[in-house]
Simulated assay, not measured.
Amino acid sequence: MVKDFQHWLITGGCGFVGTSLIKTLLAQRPNLSIRVIDNLSGGSRKDIEEVTPVRILDNIILPMADPGVELLAADIRDLKTAMKAAAGADVIVHLAANTGVQASLRNPVMDMECNVAGLVNYLEAARKNGIASFVFASSSAPIGQAEPPITEQSICRPISPYGAGKMAGEAYCSAYYGAYDLKTIALRFSNVYGPLSMRKGSVVALFIRQALGGKPWTINGDGTQTRDFIHIQDIVSAIIAAAYSPCGGEIFQISTQIETSVSDMAAMLADILKEKAGIQPDIRFGPPLKADVPRSWADISKAKTMLKWAPGRTLQEGLEETVDWFLCRI
Rank of each mutant, 00 (worst) to 15 (best):
G221R: 11
V203I: 15
N220K: 15
I208G: 08
F229I: 05
K200M: 09
I230C: 03
D181C: 08
K183V: 10
F229C: 00
P195A: 13
N220M: 13
A211C: 03
H231I: 02
Q210S: 01
L187G: 13
V192M: 02
V203F: 03
Q210E: 06
P216I: 07
G214S: 08
A175Q: 15
R209V: 04
K215M: 05
D228A: 02
S237P: 07
P195R: 12
L206S: 11
Y180R: 11
L196V: 05
K200E: 12
A205I: 06
Q233N: 10
V192K: 06
L182F: 03
W217G: 05
L206P: 00
D222W: 07
D228C: 08
R188A: 00
K183W: 02
G223R: 11
L206K: 10
G223K: 12
L187Y: 05
Q210C: 00
G201R: 01
D181S: 11
V236F: 13
F207R: 09
S190P: 00
A179C: 14
L196C: 11
F229K: 02
G214T: 12
G214I: 03
L212D: 09
G221I: 01
Q210G: 00
V204H: 02
T218G: 07
A238T: 12
R209T: 01
K215V: 10
D234W: 10
A205Y: 01
L182G: 05
I185A: 15
R227K: 10
F229E: 02
H231Y: 11
K183F: 03
H231P: 01
F189L: 05
R199E: 04
N220S: 14
D228Q: 06
V236R: 14
Y176P: 10
L187Q: 09
G178R: 13
A211W: 01
Q225D: 07
I208A: 07
I230L: 04
S202M: 01
R199N: 08
T226R: 05
Q210D: 02
W217D: 08
R209L: 02
D228M: 02
G214A: 06
Q225R: 11
G178M: 14
Y176H: 14
I185Y: 07
S202A: 01
N191R: 03
G194K: 06
T224H: 11
T218K: 12
S202H: 06
D181F: 08
L196A: 10
F207W: 10
L182M: 07
L182Y: 06
P195T: 10
L196Y: 14
D228Y: 04
N191Y: 01
G201K: 03
L196S: 11
D234A: 12
R188Q: 02
R227H: 05
M198I: 14
D228R: 12
K200W: 07
K215H: 13
Y176A: 14
N191E: 02
V204F: 00
R227N: 06
L182E: 08
S197F: 00
F207G: 10
R188K: 07
M198G: 10
D181H: 14
A179V: 12
A211L: 02
L196G: 12
R209I: 05
P216G: 03
V203K: 07
A175S: 15
I235N: 12
G213K: 11
